[in-house]
Nucleic acid binder design. Structure first.
Lengths: 276, 276
DNA sequence: CGGCTCATTGACGCCTTTCAAATAAGGTGG
DNA sequence: CCACCTTATTTGAAAGGCGTCAATGAGCCG
């Protein structure tokens, strides 16, 4: 039952990596180790936002300076990619082995039914973890597809959860990751109309980019309109029309896939305006 | 860091309780202890379905016969209720302390916005665990409301996760609980039309009742039409009309809140018929 | 330059919502 | 036990939103 303590020492390092991956938004913790497996680049490195969860990272002993022992982390946590847009990271039905943390690029998760109809279930930006829904079934229930050139960090779940047994902070972090994923799904249940759904989508992306230290106002859509539409349960034409309407109203400025949120506050108001 | 091993012995019992709660569908594991905190009654006790997850229960040492030590389980895992319909189990904004496993009755989780509009996020039947989405934010993001007379099992999350650190099976079980919740949310993203959503809802309830050993064909709706409608993003009138149409087609027989699924297979076909 | 995918725009139709009202069900007090 | 009130459910008719079909235009790679 409890006879696999061997990998624990090295696994602890993996734990640190996981915590880093899950919290890319924290300022780089005095990290200069080159080619570290799972540390996400923070472009506008100024993003030293105070994050209540950093406490966990430090509790795990990372904050001191984790750079020394990062060499053997690669035994468990491995860089993969870059994948090109359209390439599969994992496929539905494949046995579940790894979680993936996005280092750069974007991933979509897609479910396809017997008739070949596809449903986009989510988009995953750098710093986010993919694959949590596969833990219980033991197989990936979805396809993981790169939308653009994407680099990932592979986290073998067995090893990670084994570490979590030794390191309370890692376990907590995992629970939070899971819990957050549930919360995100639930918060998406709110939007009634098409306007609201699209506005919520843009604001969500904005917030998630901001979290990474990128501009909340200006960003690039990695996915085609059809994916956005499918994700929001809309027709691609409707997305186009709504974006045009948003543009006319001065809410956004979108040329191709370049998004400028001109009035995020009014977008947020639009969300509240829903049904009286 | 690892200086709180004191409660581990008693906590281990709590672990067993959690596993039981989470897997009420397993045949009662030679359980005769009266007033055990967290063992769910299995009406048609014949429900000794083979369940791959039972392996975890046994791995934790429950299967032998957990009945002996169940007395002190109550220190961590506590019976609460019965709550009357309409009573709050927990409220949005309240600090998160406990998960709740439904022993009997039904719970709904509801989110309310500033304007007072409510959104039903889920229904929870006996054997299911509520509150997972509160782990990350640290406060309940939703209200938990009893729909009928409901008895619960309170699981203090700190204690449970502490046990999970010692008992790998418990940790695995928790990960699976989280993961399953994500999967359930994602699978709900599928239905395009109102017909499909309602059919999926009925089939989902059916499957979950069957899981508990109850009839998949005949069951009782604990919630009013308005809750179903809200949950499915429909108007109550639409739900009524669709149910009427289902009845005309001979798919179901619904009198008030008593549901008879007459042709589940054809309901399932209806799901696939969606968009060509 | 040609072919391709993606994005946009318009017209029409169906499905769902909204508004309005009747009926049924459940619970309380006399 | 019955009358009554409140809430829940059902049904109808009309308005609006979103999807579908169709066609044009823009961007990209071979």
């Amino acid at each position: 039952m409890a006879g696999m303590r061997g990998a624990a020492t090295v696994s602890r390092r993996a734990a640190e990596a996981l915590l880093e991956c899950a919290h890319a938004r924290n300022g780089p913790p005095a990290m200069s180790a080159k080619s570290s497996a799972c540390v996400l680049p923070v472009p506008g490195a100024a993003g030293v936002v105070t994050c209540e969860r950093c406490a966990l990272v430090r509790a795990c002993g990372v904050a001191g300076n984790g750079s020394v022992a990062f060499a053997d982390v690669h035994q468990l946590v491995e860089d993969v990619g870059p994948f090109r847009g359209g390439q599969y990271i994992f496929r539905a039905g494949e046995p579940f082995r790894n979680l993936y943390a996005v280092k750069s690029g974007t991933i979509k998760t897609v479910q396809t039914d017997a008739e070949g109809r596809a449903q986009v279930l989510g988009f995953h930006l750098p710093g986010e973890v993919v694959g949590l829904e596969a833990v219980d079934p033991g197989v990936y229930p979805v396809d993981g597809v790169a939308l653009e050139s994407t680099r990932l960090c592979r986290l073998p779940f067995d090893a990670v959860s084994h570490v979590a047994q030794r390191e309370a902070a890692v376990q907590q972090q995992l629970f939070r990751l899971f819990s957050r994923a549930i919360g995100q799904h639930e918060s998406r249940s709110w939007d009634s109309g098409a306007d609201q759904r699209l506005a919520a989508f843009l604001l969500d992306l904005s917030a998630r980019y901001a979290q990474r230290g990128l501009s909340p106002q200006v960003f690039h859509l990695a996915m085609p309109r059809s994916d956005i539409a499918n994700f929001l349960h809309l027709a691609p034409e409707t997305v186009s029309r709504l974006l045009a309407r948003f543009r006319e109203r001065g809410l956004v400025d979108i040329i191709g896939r370049e998004v400028h949120l001109l009035a995020p506050a009014r977008l947020r108001m639009l969300l509240a305006e829903a049904a009286a």
